[in-house]
Design a protein around this nucleic acid. Structure first.
Lengths: 208, 208
DNA sequence: GTCTATACTAGGATAGAC
DNA sequence: GTCTATCCTAGTATAGAC
C-alpha cells in the first residue's frame, strides 16, 4: 500500500515552485508572441530573449517549438475553462454565450489570443496529438453546446441554425480580424469595439 | 510627336503572350498556396515546382517572395473589382452586398482566398508599399462603402452601425474560419455553408 | 528566359562545461 | 538547469552557362 505522502500531491518545494514559475513565464511569453506574429513568424530565440534566458535553457523545458506553442494553447484552453466555470449560473443561456464571446474578444484586444494555426502548420499536427489540448477543447465545446441548445430551446437563439455552426461562429469571434481593424482605426475604445462586434455577431448587420 | 505605333498599346507578340501566360500561371499557383498554407509556410521552391519551372526562372519574373505574394494579392483585388463591376446595378444595395460576400466565400471554399498577412509579416510591409494593391483596395472600399450607406439609408441595413465597421465585417467573411470548419465537418454542401454563414452575417445568430 | 549548381542566412536543435 | 558555442537543415536568393 502507498504511503500518505505518495497518495497526496506532494507539497512543492521552493525550487520546484521557482521552476514552475519560470515555465509559466515562458509559456506566457510564447502566448503573447503567438498572438502578435503567429506560429511561423515567432522564433524560439525571440521567446528566450524576451523571457531573459538562453535558448538552450528553454529547450530543457520544452522539447520543440511545437510543444512550446502547444503548451500556450493548452494554457488558453485552461483559461477558457476557468472563465466558463466563473460565468453566473443564473443568467439566461444566451447571456452566458454573450459573456463568453465578450471575454474572448477582450483577450484578443489585450494581445493574448494566439491566432489559429494554418491547415498545413506543423502546430496543427502537434495539437491534434495533444491529449491535454483536445480534452479541454471537447469539454469547452460541450459546455457551450449545452448553452446553445438551451438558448435555442427558450427561443432567444435562432433554432434554425445548426448548433455546430453557432459554436464555430462563436469560436471565430476569438480571432476576428475586425477587432484589430477597428482598433487600428482608433475611432472606438476597446469596450466600444467589443460591444459593436458582439452586436453584429448576435443581431447581424441587417436592420431589425 | 509620337508615331501611332508608340501611342497605341503595341500588339503583344506571341512570345510576349507566352511570357504573360507563364507569369499568370506562377501568380495563380502562388495564390493557391497562399490560401492553403499562408505566406510564411509557402516556399518559393514549392511554387516553382508546382508550376513546373526552376526556382531561378521564377526569380526572373519576381524579384522576391514578397513581390510574388503581392502580385497574387493584386490579382485578387483585380478579380474583386471585376466582380463588383459585374454586379447587377438594378438590385437593392443590400442585395449587392450579399452578392459580394457570397462570391468571396465561394472563392474561399474554392481554395483561392489567400489569408490575411499577420501584423508583423514582411508581406504586410510589402503590400503597404504596393501602389497597385492599395489603389485597388481603396477603390473596392469606396464602392462597398457607397452600397453600405445606401443600404443604411433605405433602412435595410442597421443604420446605427458605423459604415466602416460594416465594411470590415464584410471583408472578414472572405477569411472566415467558420467556412473551413463546416467544410471539414462534411455535413453541409458548399452552397449550404455559404448560405448559412451569409445568414448569420446579415441576420445574426439571435432569434428574430 | 531557362536551367544547374551554389552562396548565404535564419532559425531549430544540441553538445558540453559548470 | 543554466549558460556559450556550435551543428545542421531549410529556404531565399544569385551566378553563370546555354
Amino acid at each position: 500500500m502507498n504511503t500518505a505522502a505518495a497518495a497526496a500531491p506532494a507539497k512543492p518545494s521552493f525550487k520546484e515552485q521557482m521552476l514552475q514559475a519560470r515555465k509559466e513565464a515562458i509559456v506566457q511569453t510564447a502566448n503573447r508572441l503567438l498572438a502578435e506574429k503567429g506560429f511561423e513568424s515567432m522564433t524560439v530565440d525571440e521567446v528566450a530573449a524576451s523571457v531573459g534566458i538562453a535558448k538552450a535553457s528553454l529547450y530543457k523545458h520544452f522539447p520543440s517549438k511545437e510543444d512550446l506553442a502547444a503548451a500556450a494553447m493548452v494554457r488558453l484552453m485552461q483559461r477558457t475553462q476557468d472563465f466558463l466555470a466563473s460565468v453566473a449560473a443564473d443568467q439566461k443561456p444566451i447571456d452566458k454565450l454573450r459573456a463568453v464571446v465578450r471575454w474572448a474578444m477582450e483577450v484578443q484586444l489585450a494581445g493574448e489570443m494566439p491566432s489559429l494555426p494554418h491547415q498545413n502548420s506543423t502546430l496543427r499536427a502537434a495539437l491534434m496529438n495533444n491529449r491535454g489540448y483536445l480534452d479541454r477543447l471537447v469539454k469547452i465545446s460541450d459546455v457551450l453546446g449545452g448553452w446553445i441548445q438551451a438558448a435555442q430551446a427558450d427561443g432567444t437563439l435562432n433554432p434554425k441554425l445548426p448548433a455546430i455552426a453557432v459554436l464555430y461562429t462563436l469560436f471565430a469571434r476569438a480571432c476576428d480580424p475586425v477587432l484589430g481593424f477597428l482598433k487600428a482605426g482608433g475611432l472606438q475604445s476597446d469596450e466600444q469595439i467589443v460591444e459593436l462586434v458582439l452586436a453584429t455577431c448576435f443581431d447581424g448587420i441587417a436592420a431589425r
